[in-house]
Structures are given as structure tokens and as C-alpha cells.
């Protein structure tokens, strides 16, 4: 388990971490999610000891490591740009931590070969990093970090430099690996899809603070504020509320809308709007609308629903949402 308490880090006047407290359960795969510059890397690097905190402390499995150098924290760290040791072969890269620990040669060889098999780099032992693709390099970096049996595995946007297909493959693969190895893992990402896909817990960061922590479903379904809501998925503004586009229901008139809303037990505004465009996106249909007050928004319905209702451009409708929390802060969406 990792416990961060009141972590504070400033660069001059700029506050990168604003008294952040966070608990990361043992064995979990936790994502630190937030926009660029929100302090994710700073938090992760503080856990690793690559950054010194100005205040607060970090505990790993109960031990206060705040003033320990990275060497003594029992961590594995994976960098966005791999940080491969360019002058060493794949085998020597992965063996590095064990060689430093002066483990017997036979043990090192066995362990390295095992790990290379796990990460799917069997047979690449004698290649140099320059002879690997980005995805292979990152898997090598993962094997290298895992070789020293870290108590926690820290990954800073590990798939950020890879193309979309490789990225999706690798994160599934990481999830499976985590299910097998169970090492406490913290993954930094700015990609909400990635966080929702692999993590079992997500901490959303914004401007050096933690906005909300929870499992993916509760964060998506019950965001505590505008920021989390809009960062975790598409949003539409309906009256004074932010709602998910797929929660919007469109009726032909006010009375029907009101009765259906009451029947569903939903609350929130009924918004008169005009359909601007209907876009078919395979399984789903996106309907672009303009509300009476001029606000443009998007509703998303299933193809079956769209075919039943036959929405057409220029049509007047009344929109309401299946789910909307209390009216959220009126400030602009970040």
C-alpha cells in the first residue's frame, strides 16, 4: 500500500502539488488521471523518490520513505520514453537491477529469460534497444522494472509515445499481467479511455489537487463535480446541468417529456430544442441540437431508438436527461 499525505511541491511561485493526500491499496492498479500539467508525473516521481517534496510524506507498505533515495524504496519505474540503456543488450537491460544486487549469474539468467518470455520478448536477448520497436522497448522496460521484484510498480504515461493500436494492445496486456503478478501499480495517464480500460481505481488530478478518487464506474456515473464529469467522458450542457449525451431523451412535445421524466423518476430541466443534424456512427446515432437559449448540445441514441423515432433535421423536440446530479457549479467547463 502507498500512502501519500499532504504532499506539497512548488516550483517558485507555481504549486505543482497542493497538499495532495492519496491512498493506493495494495495489489490495486490505480490510474492518476488528469490533463497535461496537472501534477500527475510530479506525484508519481515523488512516490519514486525522483522528486523531493517540499512538504508532506510518502509511505510504502507502512514504511516512511519520504527521505529515502529511489534506490531504497523498492520500486520499479517505467518512463514514457522507455529510458532504455542504449549501449546494453535487451538481456543486460533487464538484468541491470539484479547485476547491481550481485545476484548469482545463473539466477540472473533464469530470471531474465523468464521475464522476457512473460513480456513476449523471448529470442530478443541479444538485440540492442535501437533494434526494437517502441512497443517492444516499453515491454523490455517493464521487464527491467519487474526484475527486481518491486513492492510497487510506477508507470509514467508508459504508452503515450506509441500509436493507437499498439497502445490499446499493450494496456490490455498490462491489465492481464497485473492480474497475474498483483504488484501494486500506479499508472499515470491523460487518456480517460486508458484509465477506464485498465485501472481498478482512478484518482483524477487537476491543478495539483485531487478532484475525486474511486472505481471507474462510480467516477463515470457519479462524478462529484464538473471537472471530473467532463474529463471522464463526453458531456452536454442541458439547462443548468452537465449530462452524458447518451442519457439525453428527446420527445416531440413538452407534455410527453414531462410525463416520461416523472415516470422515470428523473429530475432536471426540460429543454426545448431544434434538431440541426443527425449523424449515423455505426451502432450509435449522434443528434446535434440547438436549445431555445442558443446553447448547442449533442444527444446520443442507439440506432434502434433513432429508427423508431425518425428524427429529422429542423424538427422541434423537448430534451431531458435520464440522469443528472444536482446542478453543478456554473463555472465554465475546464
Amino acid at each position: 500500500m502507498i500512502t501519500v499525505t499532504d504532499a506539497r511541491k512548488t516550483y517558485g511561485d507555481f504549486v505543482a502539488l497542493d497538499d495532495v493526500s492519496l491512498e493506493i491499496p495494495a495489489g490495486s492498479l490505480t490510474a492518476l488521471l488528469g490533463p497535461s500539467g496537472s501534477g500527475k508525473s510530479t506525484l508519481l516521481r515523488s512516490i519514486a523518490g525522483l522528486e523531493d517534496l517540499d512538504g508532506g510524506n510518502v509511505r510504502i507498505d507502512g514504511e516512511d520513505v519520504t527521505h529515502q533515495p529511489p534506490q531504497h524504496r523498492g520500486i520499479g519505474f517505467v518512463f514514457q520514453h522507455y529510458a532504455a540503456f542504449k549501449h546494453m543488450t535487451v538481456r543486460d537491460n533487464v538484468a541491470f537491477g539484479l547485476t547491481i544486487r550481485r545476484r548469482p549469474k545463473a539466477e540472473v539468467a533464469r530470471k531474465v529469460d523468464d521475464l522476457l518470455e512473460i513480456v513476449g520478448l523471448d529470442g530478443f536477448q541479444h538485440r540492442y534497444p535501437a533494434q526494437l520497436s517502441g512497443g517492444q522497448r516499453q515491454r523490455m522496460a517493464l521487464a527491467r522494472a519487474l526484475a527486481v521484484d518491486p513492492q510497487v510498480l510506477l508507470l509514467d504515461e508508459p504508452f503515450g509515445a506509441l500509436d493507437a493500436k499498439v497502445r490499446a494492445d499493450l494496456r490490455r496486456w498490462l491489465r492481464r499481467l497485473h492480474d497475474e503478478v498483483h504488484v501494486t501499480t500506479v499508472l499515470v495517464t491523460h487518456d480517460q479511455e486508458e484509465a477506464l480500460d485498465v485501472a481498478d481505481r482512478i484518482a483524477v488530478l487537476n491543478k495539483g489537487r485531487i478532484e475525486q478518487v474511486g472505481d471507474p464506474v462510480s467516477l463515470y456515473e457519479r462524478p462529484e463535480n464538473d471537472f471530473v464529469m467532463s474529463f471522464l467522458g463526453a458531456v452536454s450542457r442541458l439547462g443548468d446541468r452537465l449530462v452524458r449525451p447518451h442519457d439525453i431523451v428527446l420527445e416531440r412535445d413538452h407534455a410527453t417529456a414531462a410525463s416520461r421524466q416523472a415516470a422515470e423518476g428523473a429530475v432536471g430541466p426540460l429543454v426545448a430544442a431544434r434538431v440541426d443534424r443527425v449523424v449515423r456512427l455505426g451502432f450509435e446515432v449522434r443528434i446535434e441540437l440547438t436549445a431555445d437559449d442558443g446553447e448547442r448540445f449533442v444527444a446520443q441514441v442507439t440506432r434502434a431508438e433513432a429508427e423508431r423515432r425518425r428524427y429529422t433535421a429542423g424538427e422541434d423536440v423537448v430534451a431531458w436527461a435520464l440522469r443528472s446530479e444536482e446542478p453543478v457549479g456554473a463555472g465554465p467547463v475546464a
Binding site: G76, F77, R101, A141
Partner: peptide, 23 residues
């Protein structure tokens, strides 16, 4: 980054210098 990676893998400053920086 390579030097930081070496540190997270347990290398001391000297070890990092001889094994990573110098090469």
C-alpha cells in the same frame, strides 16, 4: 532518464556513472 532509471533499479551514484553515464 537513463540515469534515473538506473537509480530506481538500485544503482548508486558511482554505479550509475560507470555503467550508464560513461558508456
Amino acid at each position: 532518464e537513463q540515469e534515473q532509471a538506473a537509480a530506481t533499479l538500485g544503482a548508486s551514484g558511482w554505479q550509475t556513472f560507470w555503467r550508464i553515464t560513461l558508456p
